[in-house]
Design a protein around this nucleic acid. Structure first.
Lengths: 196, 196
DNA sequence: CTGAAACATGAATCAGTATTCATGATCCAT
DNA sequence: ATGGATCATGAATACTGATTCATGTTTCAG
């Protein structure tokens, strides 16, 4: 019932980490279904059975990776947004941080989207909490008059969707992504809309 | 090499169609990996082997469903946009049509997103062509002065991402989706941006 | 009507791979 | 320094489910 416990030696911790990184690379490249445990352990340069010392199943590493991505994006975006003096600036900084993250950890980026089909629970938890926090920020900014009025939840999800697809198209699909250009143009639209 | 050919009798056409609908329902509900051919044929009330008379593999029905979704959204959105007298109106009508589609065919909607992981080729073809057409429309509207200036491709992908996540959150995740509300608020943002 | 082409059936085959486990090496608290 | 706890190994197991196929049944063009 209770899967493997946390590693108790340095070696154990290092092995677990190596397996996690290998899983990130392999699953991010080939997708969950096409990735075998053997692929992962081969990449981590360990024996097959070692995998099960640290994870109880393929689904579990996957889940762990999604949670890690949650911590990382949350942290990265939060930090990027620190310096902003108003919500619009924060939107711009947050978008840039997110796209930069996609460029730095493309595998993790893909994994989160695949989570929707592998582990709907964590996927939903991930976006629910992110969306909730995002909406709260927008509501506050609206009350302060930093942005115009409008349903914060709809806006939060619209903005998340925007960032996600932009990352997919202009970062993951591009050899040499031009993040600044995407941020500039997308932000202009976020701020002023399409109206002439 | 060349898989099953088109059905040559009425019965054959009906069976193929039944299998396609069953696959849509089953895969849309459980996801590709969790759906067995047996699940699909059971739902279609046919024998297991019958599946292979019409499709050469599980991947093939899946691909067929993605292509069908392509035809349907393209058709639906195009038609909805017909009546619009300018680009902004068209955006609103297109968004509504897309969300309505998600409400009508939730399974197909999910399948397209999963395609990214099952059959990247068709997924990419789907969005590439959709995105290209979308960007072309935006470019024309911009030249006519119906919308302000800005990179049409970035905008097209931003708008697609928006629509997709809004559909996921406010249509698929909601018991009784309030499409009009989402369209109103999202459109206001698309038109005027967040600026106060 | 009729028979060759199409279609239907589901048990049997087959492949891939997740997971287990018995055995041995390594670590580190005392 | 040492031995009980941790960790490493990979061959063997077990299972799932995709795909095939030999045997009937149905269709429909002529």
């Amino acid at each position: 019932m209770s899967g493997p416990s946390a590693p108790k030696t340095k070696r154990g911790a290092a092995r677990r980490e190596a397996l996690l990184r290998a899983a990130e690379a392999v699953i991010g490249e080939q997708g969950f279904a096409a990735s075998s445990i053997a692929d992962i352990t081969r990449r981590a340069e360990t024996a097959l059975g070692t995998f099960y010392i640290y994870f109880s199943s393929k689904e579990e590493v996957f889940r762990e990776l999604v949670l890690e991505m949650g911590r990382l994006t949350r942290g990265g975006v939060t930090q990027a947004v620190q310096g902003a003096s108003n919500r619009l600036e924060a939107e711009k900084a947050g978008l840039r941080a997110f796209l930069q993250f996609a460029a730095d950890r493309p595998a993790l980026y893909r994994i989160v989207e695949e989570a929707r089909f592998i582990d709907p629970e964590v996927y939903r938890a991930y976006y629910d909490s992110f969306g909730k926090a995002y909406a709260a920020q927008l509501k506050r900014a609206q009350e302060k008059g930093e942005i115009g009025p409008g349903d914060p939840e709809v806006r939060a999800w619209a903005l998340m969707g925007m960032a996600i697809k932009l990352g997919e198209r202009f970062v993951l699909w591009e050899e040499k992504p031009d993040i600044d250009h995407v941020v500039e143009d997308a932000f202009a639209m976020i701020r002023d809309g399409l109206a002439p």
